[in-house]
Design a binder for these strands. Structure first.
Length: 553
RNA sequence: GGGCCUUUAGCUCAAUUGGAUAGAGCGCCUGGCUUCGAACCAGUAGGUUACGGGUUCAAAUCCUGUAAGGCCCGCCA
């Protein structure tokens, strides 16, 4: 149990109930103690009393015994501020060392099973930086929800069906014919030639070595799709991103799930026919216009397949999270509406929109466009900065915020990226342990730290500056589990990134002020234990972000 | 015209989801290594939280209006 939970319990006891309203928060200023509660102000309204009276009453009832709470103070207009006792902090540190690499992670998957779908790009080209953003945010979210106790599965929906795929096949065949010296008619909506040329060459090359097989347009289309998909998978894998399932849209069609969904929608009376097409009465569901489900030529639309896909997912998981690029937000009402009509709880589907990435080059903002050749690929940037900086750079910002990607800045971010500031703190911790001389054994010290809080009490026998730096660091470390929960609930992994930056700052300050290894054995042991908890916390936080925690750099 | 998202220091972003004096990094300037890693630390400068109104003990945060920007409004996905 954390010191916060213990203090919370004391307040609850003093109040005889009403504890649901008690909220303890860390203070910003030292003059306000370490934690404070606004409960007196909250109750003042209900009880029609002066908040200061309630606060003072609370102060009288709760004993500051020095162990859990060393000081209580009431401040205008009714805050109750607590200074946490050194012993309670020591106890918490023992707990951190004991839990180790599980610190901050929920002990069991006690929360809802959740299926997170993200990236889901067309297999029609290289992943660009916008996909990269969705990929990084999505994978961090999966890690984060899992850390918070959700039973999480991840999935990539392959849009391997429909017009774009047909176009891919047509383009590839045109390139193939061109390579053979044929005069081909190049259509305007074809994919850029230089984008697909390497893939086509590779496939053609493979077929040259087995002349018994004839390369047809159909085969080429299939092969290039598979090849692009494979390259996407490899690229994501180099970013430490993997999926529990790659779900093909084509499968939904061949298994009849799309047809079945259409049948059910028809039966529910939410469709109609118009000019040979089948429409969803989306306006009745709150959409700005009706949507086509089946085209006049009999082919189904993306929307219909997506409804079928989400039904498929609902059969496997009670809660769904889907990440979409912001340009897809128009589909939300139609999809959710159709699901609702078919008696699925649309509130169990949460769509997270990741805002667009635009580019900045030489101070000018430009739109990313395939046609204009201004696409920046994941590959291009990843090769330049490596996976750690890449992931940090993209997870740092909130999904709801548009991101302006400065390509030149990103490429030279190898030293400036804050991820190195965090990793350096971790490496420093490791380095300290490498300095230990023979009279102190690392394993013995750490073992001692798992047994008794007394070891850590030496941390507090220090001058004011050292005491202050030490305590700030400890309080920050102990914030971690709550930070994980808050980040998960608000679906913002960027908060973990920010937390780690602050933790690293506290550690670097501590390191500057407090010498860890000294002639004072007791103090050395206590500080080594503290350094171990820093190392654990940084490593666990970086794990959520999918970033390496190096022993040295 | 309608819908979704956004606006905080020169730039990139925070602010424990309504708390007390809005904080970091980069960049500028100044100082700090004969002792555990200077990829670090300390200090200086930089703000009417886009703007107006409202809600209350308390607003960057909630409501509302205005302005600016991004995205969408296809029988593409």
């Amino acid at each position: 149990m954390s010191y916060k939970q213990k203090i919370h319990k004391e307040i609850k006891k003093a109040l005889n109930g009403e504890s649901d309203l008690v909220y303890l928060e860390r203070t910003k200023l030292k003059e306000h103690g370490d934690v404070s509660t606004n409960i007196a102000m909250v109750l003042a309204k209900k009880q029609k009393r002066n908040p200061l009276d309630i606060a003072n009453e609370l102060k009288e009832k709760i004993k500051a015994d020095g162990s859990l709470i060393s000081h209580i103070e009431v401040a205008k207009p009714g805050f109750v501020n607590f200074v946490v006792g050194d012993y309670a902090l020591s106890e918490s540190l023992v707990e951190v060392i004991n839990i180790g690499d599980k610190f901050g992670f929920a002990p069991e998957k006690s929360k809802e099973e959740t299926l997170v779908e993200y990236v889901s790009a067309n297999p029609t080209g290289d992943l660009h930086i916008g996909h990269g953003r969705q990929a990084v945010i999505g994978s961090c979210l999966v890690n984060l929800l899992s850390a918070a106790g959700y039973d999480v599965k991840s999935e990539f929906y392959i849009n391997d069906f429909g017009e774009q795929i047909q176009n891919l096949s047509d383009t590839a065949w045109a390139i193939h014919c061109k390579l053979n010296g044929e005069n081909v008619q190049w259509k305007e909506d074809f994919y850029p030639e230089d984008l697909l040329l390497p893939y086509v060459k590779k496939i053609v090359g493979a077929y040259c070595s087995k002349p018994q097989q004839q390369l047809t347009k159909e085969i080429l289309g299939q092969e290039i799709k598979d090849l692009i998909l494979k390259s996407q998978e490899e690229l994501l894998s180099s970013l430490k991103i993997s999926f529990d399932k790659w779900h093909s849209e084509t499968d939904l069609h061949t298994r009849g799930e799309v047809k079945n969904t259409l049948k059910k929608l028809k039966e529910s009376g939410i469709t109609y026919e118009h000019e040979g097409a089948i429409w969803l009465k989306a306006q009745e569901l709150g959409d700005v216009r009706d949507r086509v489900l089946v085209r006049s030529d009999g082919r189904s639309t993306y929307l219909l397949a997506d409804v079928a896909y989400h039904i498929n997912k609902f059969k496997r998981s009670t809660k769904l999270i889907t990440l979409w690029g912001a340009d897809h937000h128009g589909q939300e009402v139609g999809l959710k509406g159709a699901l609702k009509v078919l008696k699925y709880d649309e509130n169990k589907l949460e769509i997270i929109f990741v805002q667009m990435v635009s580019l900045k080059k030489e101070g000018q903002e430009i739109k990313m466009s395939k046609r204009a050749g201004t696409v920046v690929t994941v590959d291009e940037v990843l090769n330049e900065v490596g996976p750690d900086a890449f992931r940090y750079f993209l997870v740092e910002s909130h999904p709801n915020h548009r991101m302006i990607f400065d390509i030149d800045l990103a490429k030279k971010q190898d030293k400036d990226n804050p991820v190195y500031y965090i990793q350096y703190a971790h490496a420093r911790c490791c380095s300290i342990f490498r300095q230990i001389t023979d009279d102190i054994k690392k394993e013995e010290v750490l073992k001692k730290c798992t047994i008794s809080p007394d070891v850590f009490m030496y941390l507090f026998k220090a001058n004011n500056q050292e005491y202050s730096a030490t305590k700030s660091l400890i309080l920050r470390i102990l914030d971690f589990p709550e930070e994980v929960l808050n980040s998960a609930e608000s679906r913002s992994p960027s908060r973990i990134a920010n937390y780690l930056k602050e933790l690293a700052t506290d550690f670097h300050q501590f390191y500057t002020v407090c010498r860890v290894i000294s002639k004072d054995i007791n103090l050395t042991e206590a500080r080594l234990g503290l350094v171990e908890t820093v190392k654990i916390t940084i490593a666990n936080g970086l794990k959520i972000l999918g970033i390496n925690a190096p022993e040295s750099m």
